[in-house]
Simulated assay, not measured.
Amino acid sequence: MQPFTTLEAIAVPLDQPNVDTDQIVPARFLREPRQIQAEIYFYDLRYDDEGRPRPEFVLNQPSYNGARIMVADRNFGCGSSRECAVTVLLDNGFRTVIAPSFSDIFFNNCFQNGVLPIRLDADRVKQIREMLHFSPGARIAIDLANQTVLGPDGKTDHFAVDSFRKDCLLKGVDDINLTLSYEGDIAAFEARQRETMAWLG
């Protein structure tokens, strides 16, 4: 997992509330390999019934090409639990999603995969989205260490983040990496256990 420290990038506004995981990765694609899933994210919103790109959908608009920050509406990532709803965002370059609220499972899956979910006040998030629509290609800067978001208007907002999750993102470690960092201690414990509890077999 790549560490997350600071990020300054183009941001894309997504105005729909309650964007669920089936919109991010439609269920019919769940058995596809990760590489294919990355190509079909938001498929039913990005394409019409004939498979043609919908020019009105924001992720199809050239001004937002290269965006690495998504600014969404409330309850983003709701619906069924599927980790690929996060990995397809990551595989398309997104390291941060800013929204007023998230599904709990999606929110936690973000941290496990190196994506930073940021909760900000709903009115402020709406204001940022409006600025991004007005000035396509506008950038946002994020500083995880200081827990700040610098908006397109130059205003700085502070966000809350769990200290443990923050430390893991800064170091680029997930739960598995963290556990493996204690491999020596685990081996020593198991050796002592074999000596003192031989009856365990």
Rank of each mutant, 00 (worst) to 15 (best):
42 F>Y: 03
21 T>V: 12
78 C>F: 04
199 W>C: 02
41 Y>Q: 02
160 A>V: 13
99 A>N: 04
7 L>Q: 00
121 D>G: 03
11 A>W: 00
101 S>N: 06
167 D>W: 08
119 R>Y: 03
5 T>P: 09
45 L>Q: 11
50 E>F: 13
84 C>R: 13
99 A>G: 06
98 I>G: 00
174 D>F: 04
103 S>Q: 07
101 S>M: 07
127 Q>M: 12
89 L>P: 05
141 A>K: 08
165 R>I: 10
90 L>E: 12
155 K>S: 14
147 Q>R: 12
138 A>Q: 05
146 N>G: 03
23 Q>E: 13
101 S>E: 09
27 A>R: 10
152 P>R: 03
61 Q>F: 00
39 E>R: 10
35 Q>M: 11
108 N>F: 03
18 N>V: 11
57 F>A: 08
110 C>S: 11
66 G>V: 01
197 M>R: 08
21 T>D: 14
67 A>C: 02
192 R>Q: 15
176 I>D: 06
114 G>W: 06
152 P>K: 05
170 L>W: 11
23 Q>I: 15
197 M>K: 05
94 F>L: 02
137 G>S: 09
158 H>C: 15
116 L>N: 07
74 R>Y: 02
17 P>L: 07
49 D>I: 13
38 A>V: 08
115 V>W: 05
27 A>Y: 09
34 R>W: 12
41 Y>G: 01
82 R>T: 05
138 A>P: 05
107 F>I: 13
116 L>W: 05
180 L>C: 09
48 D>S: 11
4 F>V: 07
88 V>M: 08
107 F>K: 08
108 N>Q: 10
113 N>C: 10
47 Y>W: 14
38 A>N: 15
17 P>Y: 08
177 N>W: 10
44 D>Q: 09
104 D>S: 14
29 F>D: 06
130 E>L: 12
6 T>I: 10
144 L>I: 01
142 I>M: 00
164 F>I: 15
117 P>A: 03
112 Q>H: 12
166 K>I: 05
189 F>I: 14
42 F>W: 02
153 D>M: 08
106 F>G: 03
184 G>I: 08
60 N>V: 03
95 R>P: 05
55 P>V: 13
92 N>S: 06
104 D>H: 13
77 G>D: 10
187 A>F: 09
17 P>C: 06
32 E>N: 13
180 L>P: 05
184 G>M: 07
116 L>K: 00
46 R>Y: 06
70 M>L: 10
119 R>P: 04
89 L>I: 09
21 T>A: 07
2 Q>L: 14
99 A>L: 06
96 T>H: 01
141 A>T: 02
79 G>E: 10
